[in-house]
Design a protein around this nucleic acid. Sequence first.
DNA 1: TTTTTTGCAAAACCTTTGCAGTTGG
DNA 2: CCAACTGCAAAGGTTTTGCAAAAAA
Lengths: 151, 151
Amino acid sequence: MPHAPHSPPLAFSNIEDVAVELRRRGGRFSGPRRAVLEALFAAKGPVPADEIASGLGGKLPVLELSSVYRSLEYLEEMGAVRHVHLGHGPGLYVLTGGTEREYLVCERCHEVTEVEAHQLDPLRREIRERFGHEARFSHFPIVGLCANCRS
Amino acid sequence: MPHAPHSPPLAFSNIEDVAVELRRRGGRFSGPRRAVLEALFAAKGPVPADEIASGLGGKLPVLELSSVYRSLEYLEEMGAVRHVHLGHGPGLYVLTGGTEREYLVCERCHEVTEVEAHQLDPLRREIRERFGHEARFSHFPIVGLCANCRS
DNA sequence: TTTTTTGCAAAACCTTTGCAGTTGG
DNA sequence: CCAACTGCAAAGGTTTTGCAAAAAA
């Protein structure tokens, strides 16, 4: 499947893959780091740190919020995780790898539409040609009116 | 949450125009509101609330930060002001009206490029056709690598 | 005078940090 | 064992809020 995003997509398809890379870098695969990864693998979309800390509503271990932030920071540095800001709330964390997703948010009903990154490639080309800027829509969403709210 | 005024872009070209509309809505044209507007008219780009509060570096009156936030909120509700988030710092406020501007930010060198809104119309069309979403790029920037950092 | 708005202080919210103790390798 | 990591507590940065006093109309 030919989609060539920008950076080499370290696709970690399971927790053990992350553990291996983490140890390769001299890191330790601690309880909290494992639990954060479990939460992220279990989550269906981007999640805030405090939801991870509270064990995604009860099924996973409860963690110290500051440790969650530190784990997320570490995992982000190693490229296993990224975060997005879809509005005014807290940052939301997702696993990288697999099919990269980007976000459209409706400013009226706040509906969030996930799209696969390569679906925005024509836009990226347009922007590159026009402004020389290589757009990633990976940190902030495209905000506007969804089809419903337009009418 | 991103709120852009959906109604016709009221273009206020000077402070008195805002004052008139403000009073028409039953509001009062107080000292702080005037000072906030002066700061925004004086600023060359989007500015954070605390810079407005401190009189843009000395030439304008010093205001209470909470009053600045309240004034900005009011002016935003009446469509004279909007705010953007160009990164992880505080929100940045700008006047609406006149030539609307949108922003491209380089994720490496943090350079901010202002573009006139209509320059993004082809992108908007593309997005509308593809996702039915009427994009405004007015609240978050388009983040990516600028021409320089790409090479 | 009446209602809105301000100033101040305090809190709320999200995130980071210092440090002593614990733990993974 | 020892560096890396965690828990806890505290602080940092941004924005909001409650309330009595001040000011606009």
